[in-house]
Design a protein around this nucleic acid. Structure first.
Lengths: 338, 338
DNA sequence: CTGAAAGCGCTTACAG
DNA sequence: CTGAAAGCGCTTACAG
């Protein structure tokens, strides 16, 4: 019922191997024969069965894409960009969306059963054991937004500390001295780095944090924590937030209290999500270079895939399996809120 | 190198067929033998190769999931829900994110080459020819949020007209008489239905629309169009927006002009995205039942998949291939903005 | 450059 | 319930 390579072979008067070659870039086949086979295939409506191809060949073209809850703007933006880059690389993303508490190992193991060519993990955390299993299964792993403590997994990640340095520099240059901090989800890699970056930046200037609160990267938590900060006896003159979503909440809090931003209180975020540029926010923040991040992740992955795929012609100039960690620099985006 | 069914068979002292059966629900195998095989498999770290399984069996477990740009909140929410339901059904989503202008046919054809068991299309439009090809390839198609004019494709969709009836009823009950409309992307199925629903609702009441503008479902377009409406000589006392995002923009516009919401101007949305409940919006809107939509879509798909999969034992009580269109009723969600 | 053959790792009739 | 065998639709050495 379905048209197969054999049908095309017969119709084109060639062997089945030749139709396979016609569809394989760089395969040995005469140019005009390829054209002919392709034409016949087209007429018959033939497309190579990717599943069969995956069983036989070394690649399925599938890439596991693990992202966090896309109802969060930053995550959505990242997913959008990563999925676009994956498709551009002529691969297909097998989507795995994880919720905060989700166990990742089991699901990734599941993806491995699909013989994915690799995995990009932008959420959740992968146990070292599973990372090892991925490698062993020939599915290289690239972490996004987080560097594994073991240091043996490729990763691409924003320079969070630099981001806070830029923000502190901006605020202090404008005369702010009473800085407060609303951190994101505690044990989170990004939160740890950002908070640390903030403290270092203050330290360098001989300053101290006025107050620190803990949110969970959601708009609502930013609102709640900012409300507390802004009604405390010792009021800050600037609030740095662990991400943009919380900063939007903080702006709403300030307005609810009748405070003007940045007149009475300056507010900054982190990421530069699309909403940061919206009315009525106009958030001053630091740009998390998502597109560059996605590209770098795919580059690393592709590198690994071709590196492990054909061990034969690999003349390892460098150490073949040296871990690569790409750190991308954020940039200050100055708008109205600070 | 990878552990295969043969390895497990040997280690467990059974035939390869038995290990296959151990992993197939409902396959003929003695209960204790299955337990034994599974135990051995576990010890060896064996998982059936889904690709091989897909080649041989009738299902790959893959489902093509087509969604629009997830940087839009409603789309993100829908994606999140659909992907969760797909995983819950023990399938994997092959993600296809389409941008507004994207051609869908080619990409879906691509997905077909992966022998997807079905496709859920929540964005873009599918040509009748491709819909037919999906069916022919044994990959049933379910549209979400849109009913194909040909009427031969399963679909699940919100009752858009009812949604606008609810909103108009709410507004008129509160004394609003000068209603304006900001529509979404023109040729869009949802926009056509919503606008039509609005006009019908007004008609029933012998009312006329004061003014109508056209946005593109984005926050910014809502802001821009509302600005125009609110600075016109004939000012409306309520603005209905084609979706929540535009309504958020409209609220920002009102505030920018120093108008109070809903005191000076009432504003409504459509969808009830998470942000609708946020400060400082508190948007009165109509709930687009996303979870129910996702569930219904999966139910329809599963029905088709099992229906076409085993033609043998199918005793078609009803017409087996009658198109099913599920219309889900929206509900009014009253908050502060109207 | 080309074809015949083997094989990828499973599942599923087919016979017990 | 169980096993031996055929086959899913390709790709890739292998030999020309």
């Amino acid at each position: 019922m379905r048209v197969t390579a054999d049908d095309v072979a017969e119709a084109a008067g060639v062997s089945r191997a030749m139709v396979s070659r016609a569809f394989t870039e760089g395969a040995p086949i005469a140019a005009r024969k390829r054209a002919h086979v392709l034409a016949v295939a087209e007429k018959l409506g033939y497309r190579p069965n990717r599943i069969a191809r995956g069983l036989t060949g070394s690649q399925t073209g599938l890439i596991a894409l693990v992202v966090g809850s896309v109802s969060r703007p930053y995550e959505a933006w990242l997913l959008e960009t990563l999925s676009r880059e994956i498709r551009q690389a002529r691969n297909w993303p097998l989507l795995l969306q994880v919720q905060p508490g989700d166990e990742l190992d089991n699901a990734l193991e599941d993806a491995l059963a699909y013989q994915v060519d690799g995995a990009i993990v932008a959420a959740g955390s992968v146990s070292p054991a599973l990372a090892e299993r991925c490698r062993a299964s020939g599915a290289p792993l690239v972490m996004v937004g987080r560097v594994m403590p073991e240091g043996d997994t490729d990763a691409v990640c924003c320079d969070n500390r630099l981001g806070l340095e830029l923000l502190v520099e901006h605020l202090t240059a404008r005369g702010h001295t009473r800085l407060a901090w609303i951190g994101g989800t505690p044990e989170t890699f990004s939160n740890i780095e950002r908070q640390d970056g903030l403290l270092q930046a203050l330290d360098r200037r001989g300053m101290k944090l006025l107050a620190a609160r803990q949110g969970d990267y959601s708009v609502d938590s930013g609102l709640a924590q900012a409300l507390t900060l802004l009604t405390a006896p010792e009021k800050p003159d600037a609030i740095l937030c662990g991400n943009d979503a919380m900063a939007l909440g903080a702006i709403a809090a300030a307005r609810r209290l009748g405070l003007s931003v940045p007149g009475d209180i300056a507010i900054t975020g982190f990421d530069d999500i699309p909403a940061a540029a919206w009315e009525p926010y106009q958030l001053t923040t630091v740009r998390n270079p998502v597109v560059e991040t996605a590209r770098a992740a795919l580059r690393l992955l592709k590198q690994r895939i071709s590196g492990t795929g054909q061990l034969d012609s690999e003349a390892p100039t460098g150490m073949p399996h040296q871990t690569q960690v790409v750190r991308l620099a954020p940039e200050l985006v100055q708008r109205q809120s600070a």
